[in-house]
Design a protein around this nucleic acid. Structure first.
Lengths: 185, 185, 185, 185
DNA sequence: AATGAATGAGAGTTCATTCAT
DNA sequence: TATGAATGAACTCTCATTCAT
């Protein structure tokens, strides 16, 4: 049911998707949808919250197995984010494009999850600068750029492209390290 | 009338904006809108086409006064794009988010304009690599990333922020040069 | 609901009748109408299909109790058609005037029903000619004329006229027999 | 301009044809239409009046060259009407189907013209009965039937059919004479 | 947990008509 | 005579949501 909503939102956008369409995709009746969710906006909120939590979990898991150096950690989270964007592409697309239609308290919960994700990258970049690994004069901006690029991948990635998600992850990790001015062999 | 549509689309999205709202913003009646535009989709197409053309013109103008080195040219187009995104923020937002709702032949015209913009960046990065100025092993991917970051600025820039558009332009130019692995003093 | 549509179509024509009007006549709301019928065109199709099927059933029933001679059978179907046109006048009017607004596959179903009705008359007239009862040199044309006249009755009949439907049926049967050149006492 | 209206009405019906469409067909602008005609209804009235007058003139002309016997006169007017229906088919179609949308004083003028046409046929049939040429017991009904059949021709005639209008005229004249029970060789 | 019927608001679009020029 | 801009009402149809069962 939530995945039906996710698909519908990713295809037609929040305003372009109808509750009827979502119900049909979910294989149930329109009215039954309202036994699970009080309103359309809650569907979006749930979907976005879940996507962000899932992403955050993936990033944290990647960090746990990463080495100490900031470059290792940055490589790990970038890779993890890229792979997540490729595998959860519809969720990624919706997270990017439909967040703006969230309102009220539902919005705040999602904002918080996003902020935590952003903070995770910022921390890594700043610690790298502090330790002398990275030499960028703009750690905060670089971190934001890196997150934006990882997220944007959901918009342009095609599963049938000629590069695997793993290759793309390597490329993006390299480009991220370049952006923070980490020495590259 | 087109600026009314632009505002409406940027505020509520293509599907969230109504022709009635656009007409009101434009200071005319709903039915009179249809004396100028055959359908809502054409409003979007016109607005997107104009934004892309305007951006492309700004980029080309910046290139004309730039020096020969690829780093100078990259700095010039990144700066120009960032400034455009800050100044034409609503157009930038709509260009990013609502492009997906374009269909048919209207879509193709906009796709072409976007491709030309992208090509402009790709050409610079590749020439920089060829001349030995840039050392990135991923010129194509770096160019895409740079364009994405310039465009994304429209989504997060706040006019009342503590940094001026010019400062942001300098930062982003620096980060772009770092990403293509250009020597930075 | 279908009878509401029938009334509306007969009064104002297909294009002149509005879905709102039909909903009001049916005692429900405009939007609820669309829970039963996907589009206005389907209302017309349903109404026409039903009218034609009903008519065809009446004609066949009349044939079953008719004697063997072609003149008896022709008299029977003309009578039955005339009575049907008088009693189902609104259906008759709509069947004549609004058929032209049917499109696509819905149209074909109705065309088929009409063809069957026509064929029924043609068969009788041709068999009468073959058996020597009728002497018209134009059986096919005569049969079409007869059907047209029976149908047209819905357009001019007035319930408060001075002749009963049964009298009119007798007259029209007589005139039909005259047209096919059957001996009249 | 009136012929543009005629075409539009015959194709889409009175309610289905728009003033814009009529203007376009006439090769002028929508607003200029209103320099010639005060309202859409007047377009219909004019077109119908003209068609009926034209038909009536054709029938009277046919009568002038016809012989004295009622059968000759009936043959003449039926032929003339059939030929008119075939040649002025669109006018004939509109005269049949769209008359119902006429209202008010415009309607009366057209009703009068139609009545005169009907009367012309009734007079002939009744005189034939009086003179002993026709033996129908239902002269009035026969006359109405004949007029209906002549008019209906506009609905089913196809110019590319295998019979010429003249042949059809002969057939219909024969069938009309049969209906009024005139001796046929 | 599930359904079909119902609703009022609103969507995009077209209508016949008018007005200023 | 001719135009393009303008208008308010109406169009078909869809919306998110509710209710009775």
């Amino acid at each position: 049911m939530f995945s039906a909503a996710l698909d519908a939102f990713s295809t037609n956008g929040f305003n372009g998707a109808s509750m009827r369409e979502i119900a049909t995709r979910a294989g149930t009746s329109l009215s039954n949808l309202y036994n699970y969710v009080p309103a359309k906006a809650d569907l979006l909120a749930h979907v976005l919250k879940r996507a962000n939590d899932d992403l955050l979990a993936a990033l944290r898991a990647a960090l746990e197995t990463a080495g100490d150096p900031a470059s290792d950690r940055l490589r790990a989270v970038v890779s993890a984010y890229v792979l997540w964007s490729a595998r959860q592409q519809t969720a990624g697309v919706v997270a990017i494009s439909e967040f703006r239609y969230l309102e009220g308290s539902l919005r705040e919960a999602v904002v918080e999850a996003r902020d935590r994700t952003q903070q995770l990258f910022t921390d890594i970049v700043e610690s790298g600068v502090a330790s002398g690994e990275f030499h960028t004069p703009y750690p905060h901006e670089a971190a934001r750029n890196i997150v934006l690029l990882c997220a944007a991948l959901a918009n342009w990635y095609h599963a049938d492209g000629r590069r695997t998600p793993e290759q793309i992850a390597d490329e993006q990790a390299h480009l991220a390290l370049a952006m923070v001015q980490s020495p590259l062999e």
